[in-house]
Design a binder for these strands. Structure first.
Length: 495
RNA sequence: GUCCCCAUCGUCUAGUCUGGUCUAGGACACCGCCCUUUCACGGCGGCGACAGGGGUUCAAAUCCCCUUGGGGACGCCA
């Protein structure tokens, strides 16, 4: 790109939560700005008052905050104050600007008043659908004479853009040149009869006045871009560069529906994914780095490496399995201390009395799970036994580790190891277990797995010696005795 | 229906612009083996794709056309 200042933006309409697709657009704009020393702008497209609610603004803000996407210019948003010299950044506060520009277009003959009613137009569209014709505006009000207009008196009117003859070319960075015959566009409305600007006018006026240099957005806007190019030209604004990236698809290959789980980026927070994972994963959904084969990227790396040239043209499906893998990678990159911080709220919410433990103990607990968990939420089944003794034993495990001929012997040997350990450390326990196994001619697995089942009630979990060490001698011994008692009193094992 | 975009393993992709180095490379998933106290991690190996048809060319995944498939857009929504 050029060295002249890049200015790009994301312009969500606050009509719901932060959609994963909006997050992608925001991310690509943000990364592009960052990798070029440019400016990233947030603008709220709330021209449709009926669909905008303040709570949505909050929800969206939380999504951006969680992902860590921060903007250089933008409206007051959540607890952020308005910032930037090209404001206001909410379209609802820029209505005056749109009216002025629309009036200018009308005065220059580039737009005109249309007195057709919504009902008339709807009927025409339905008729067109019936006859399998493309729905197009009839052009009824295109050439009204000043007399005819005067005769309308104060009948409400919308304003339509007078689409010129010819062809419009969108010179798209990702898609290449896209040529569309202007006759494919009918004279579209730019101002509603209630005086509010339509999206197309608003975007172009805003992008023009905010000196946007690059419009990076989903390719659902590709055909709209033609309208925008015409509007840029009509208004006399310099044309920004366009880059229309493909949409994110669901596992079935459709546009990721708002109703699907995961459409809301905060769904992923709830499911135990790290924001750095989401940034990394979404970046991969339509972009590859020069460095072949590499897929793990930190945010700082992305800010360095991101280029529009490496954007993909075809839509990508969201693959949960790959996301899991990536999340595991990012979890392992965390320091045990950081992992502890991420995991604590989850354990707390689960009702585990984590605040009774020392910080060191909690960090160690997080550390012994780090290699094991694909999502933060998996911390729960990996650590619940620390906070409550097992009330039941895994059925398969019971048969396998409690009911064999050597089960009792193994568990008693393990218990002896615990009782006699000189020091309560991972290495001491390990050595002691190994010595006992050898001496009693038992498989180490019998000792270890039996102990795991006795202490946790499960057959899977963190490394055994690590877990025993953290559980503490007293608690471990108690649980071993309970297990032995359970085996002896539940009968069937003696056979 | 009309217009626009897209098309390499199941999925994400490299390679396409600048045809030959591609008997098509990597990653996730899957399968097997190794490591191993479980689970996971890690290591090794396997399975697996240029949508189809025509051209152009000495040579095509790469260029052109058609077909098919998928997606998107056609609002006084954004």
């Amino acid at each position: 790109m050029t060295t002249s200042a890049v200015r790009c933006r994301v312009a969500p309409s606050p009509s719901g939560f932060l959609h994963i697709g909006t997050a992608k657009t925001a991310l690509y704009n943000w990364l592009f700005a960052r990798s070029n020393g440019g400016t990233f702008i947030l603008r709220l497209e709330d021209t449709d008052a009926e669909r905008t609610e303040e709570q949505y603004v909050q929800a969206m803000c939380e999504g951006f905050k969680w992902l860590g996407i921060e903007w250089d210019e933008g409206p007051e948003f959540g607890d952020e104050p308005e910032k930037g010299a090209f404001g206001p950044y909410r379209q609802s506060q820029r209505l005056q600007l749109y009216s002025e520009e629309a009036a200018r277009l009308v005065a220059e003959g580039k737009a005109y008043r249309c007195y057709c009613t919504k009902e008339e137009l709807d009927a025409q569209r339905e008729q067109a659908a019936l006859e399998k014709r493309p729905p197009r505006y009839s052009g009824k009000c295109r050439n009204l004479t000043p007399e005819e207009i005067a005769a309308k008196g104060d009948t409400p009117y919308a304003i339509r853009f007078r689409v010129p003859e010819g062809e419009t070319v969108i010179d798209d960075i990702i898609q290449g040149p896209v040529r569309i015959q202007n006759k494919e566009y009918d004279d579209f409305i730019i101002v509603k009869s209630n005086g509010d600007a339509i999206f197309h006018l608003a975007v172009v006026v805003d992008d023009g006045l905010m000196k946007i240099t690059h419009v990076i957005r989903g390719d659902d806007h590709l055909t709209n871009a033609g309208r925008h190019v015409m509007l840029f030209n009509a208004l006399g604004y310099p044309l920004p560069k366009f880059a229309h990236h493909p949409l994110i698809h669901d596992e079935q290959g459709r546009k990721y529906s708002k109703r699907l789980h995961g459409a809301n980026v905060l769904d992923w927070r709830k499911d135990g994914y790290l924001p750095e994972t989401m940034i990394n994963y979404i970046s991969l959904l339509g972009w590859t780095s020069e460095e072949e084969g590499r897929e793990f990227y930190t945010l700082d790396e992305l800010k360095q490496l991101f280029t529009l040239k490496r954007l993909t043209k075809s839509p990508a499906r969201f693959d949960r399995k790959k996301l899991d893998w990536l999340n595991g990678q990012h979890i392992r990159m965390l320091s045990p201390d950081a992992l502890c911080d991420r995991v604590l709220p989850i354990l707390r919410e689960q009702g585990f009395p984590v605040d009774e433990r020392s910080r060191d103990w909690l960090v160690e607990m997080a550390a012994i799970c780090q290699e094991k968990i694909p999502t933060l939420n998996h911390i729960i089944p990996y650590t619940d036994f620390f906070f409550a003794a097992p009330t039941a034993y895994d059925e398969k495990g019971d048969r396998k580790f409690f009911r064999q001929d050597t089960s009792l012997q193994a568990l008693e040997a393990a218990l002896e190891c615990m009782r006699q350990a000189d020091e309560w450390t991972v290495t001491a326990l390990k050595e002691s277990y190994e010595a006992a196994a050898e001496q009693k001619e038992l498989k180490i697995g019998a000792l270890v797995n039996g102990t795991r089942l006795a202490l946790t009630g499960k057959t899977v979990g963190p490394g055994l010696y690590e877990l025993v060490k953290l559980l503490g001698r007293e608690e471990s011994v108690q649980r071993m005795e309970a297990a032995l008692n359970y085996i002896k009193t539940s009968g069937e094992g003696t056979a």
